[in-house]
Every structure is written in structure tokens, then in C-alpha cells.
Design a binder for these strands. Structure first.
Lengths: 126, 126
DNA sequence: CTGGATCCATGATGATACTG
DNA sequence: CAGTATCATCATGGATCCAG
């Protein structure tokens, strides 16, 4: 233990947004859930979709999503082994948020890059 | 430098959700933006709304939100000093996401708490 | 060969004290 | 009031090792 205890535990600090952040927050959970929103995926399939996540982090984040009841883990005892992850019906309720995040990202990626460059340049000449 | 450089820098890893996570992700940004969505707030006003954030983190996160162009910082040169933070018009485009996160949190807080307790109990007896 | 665990390094976040 | 400085802790990354 002692590892993989990302979420606050208390969940709330008087703000409903905190609850949601505690479930889909962190660096990877949103992206993982988004990939699962288009159907069940195997462990290494998820890795291919997120080339920069480490095995360790993928495992940990999937465990937390399981604990929160938004992701289901199905183990097929075959050779070679196979583990499939999917959204639970509860996890499906997050889809609207995930799709909005996807759409916002598509629409505003350029803007963000520009803003960051502009602000950094501005900072340089003070 | 070396501190307060939360966002990836590259923004994208082939996934649009990553872009959005990079802007509103982290432990606090979503909550900060949500509180600003109901109007401009002063620094200590935000602290009161988020009793568990530290001054340091609030400052750092607000700076990053500024760099990304979603938050505006207005300085009033008075005694005592006064600084007001507000959403930019670009930042306003995040409101639908923030409100969905709020609504999901309100509706599912209980479920999350229950799920976590259930899973932890289940884990105990293996 | 797939899924996952362990060890150690780095970066993000927290706590406290202090300043214009 | 609105921060900054410094130090401690926790989450995340990287490499490697283990089980089926």
C-alpha cells in the first residue's frame, strides 16, 4: 500500500466540482476514460493509444477508476493472458463531460499554443 | 524556473482530451475556474472559497491559467492592495464543462463515497 | 509474450514563515 | 492584502524484475 492513493479520501471540500475532479482528475484519468468511451480496450491497447504513459501509471490509474466504480476489469484466463477494461454503466455517465473536453480540445488547441508562446515572450522582455 | 511548470509544454500527445486536461487539469484549476465562473473574485476571496488550498498553490495555478489565457488578472494600485481575477472571454468557453462537472459531482457524490468504501472493504478480506 | 510489481529519481504539491 | 521563499512530502516517471 501507500502507493496509488491519488484521491483525497474526503472527496469533498464544500465544492461539487472537487468531487468530479477527484474522480476524473490527475494527469491521465480523463484520457483513459475517453479512450474507453469508444469501447472496451485491452491493457496494451491503451498503452498504444497513450504512448507517453508508463505501465506503472496506467495500472495505478485503472485501479483507482475501478475503485470509484467507473471502470470494469474483465480477466480472460487464456494463453496468452488477456485483460479488458471498459466503462461501467456508472462510468458511462461521464461521457458528456469527456466529449465536451474532447471538443474543447479540438477547437482550442491552436489558441492554447499561441497564448502560451505570447505570454512567455511577453515575460521575457520585462 | 523549475517550479510551477505544470503543463506538459507540448500540449498534445495525439489526443484532444489531453489538451483540455493540460489547461483545466491538476488538483485545483477546475475548482478555481468554477468559482470564477460566477464572477470576478479577489485573491483572498478565492482562498475562503477553497479553504484547503495553500497561498502558494493558488498563486501558481492562477499564473498558469493566466498564461493559458483563460484567466485575467486586474491589479488595483490602492492601499490596501487589491487584485481581482476573472475569466477571460476565452475562459468563458470552459463554462459548459465546468457546469457539467459541478452537476455530475452533485448527483454522484454519495455514489462515489459508497463505491470507495465497498471496494476497500472487498479488498480487505481477500 | 502480456499484465503487473518493485526500486529509485524527478517533479508537483503542501506547510510555514516572511515581505512590499 | 496579496503575495514570495524555503523546506518537506507526495504523485509521477523510468528502468527493471516477476508471474502466468
Amino acid at each position: 500500500m501507500s502507493d496509488a492513493a491519488n484521491h483525497t479520501g474526503v472527496v469533498n471540500a464544500g465544492c461539487p466540482v472537487t468531487v468530479t475532479v477527484d474522480v476524473i482528475g490527475g494527469k491521465w484519468k480523463g484520457v483513459i476514460l475517453y479512450h474507453l468511451s469508444s469501447g472496451a480496450k485491452r491493457f496494451n491497447e491503451l498503452r498504444r493509444l497513450m504512448p507517453s504513459i508508463t505501465q506503472r501509471m496506467l495500472t495505478l490509474q485503472l485501479r483507482e477508476l475501478e475503485v470509484d466504480g467507473v471502470v470494469h476489469r474483465e480477466i480472460y484466463r487464456e494463453i496468452p493472458p488477456k485483460v479488458e477494461y471498459s466503462l461501467t454503466s456508472f462510468g458511462e455517465t461521464l461521457k458528456p463531460i469527456l466529449f465536451m473536453m474532447r471538443d474543447w480540445g479540438i477547437k482550442n488547441e491552436e489558441v492554447i499554443v499561441t497564448n502560451r508562446n505570447t505570454m512567455l515572450d511577453a515575460g521575457r522582455e520585462e
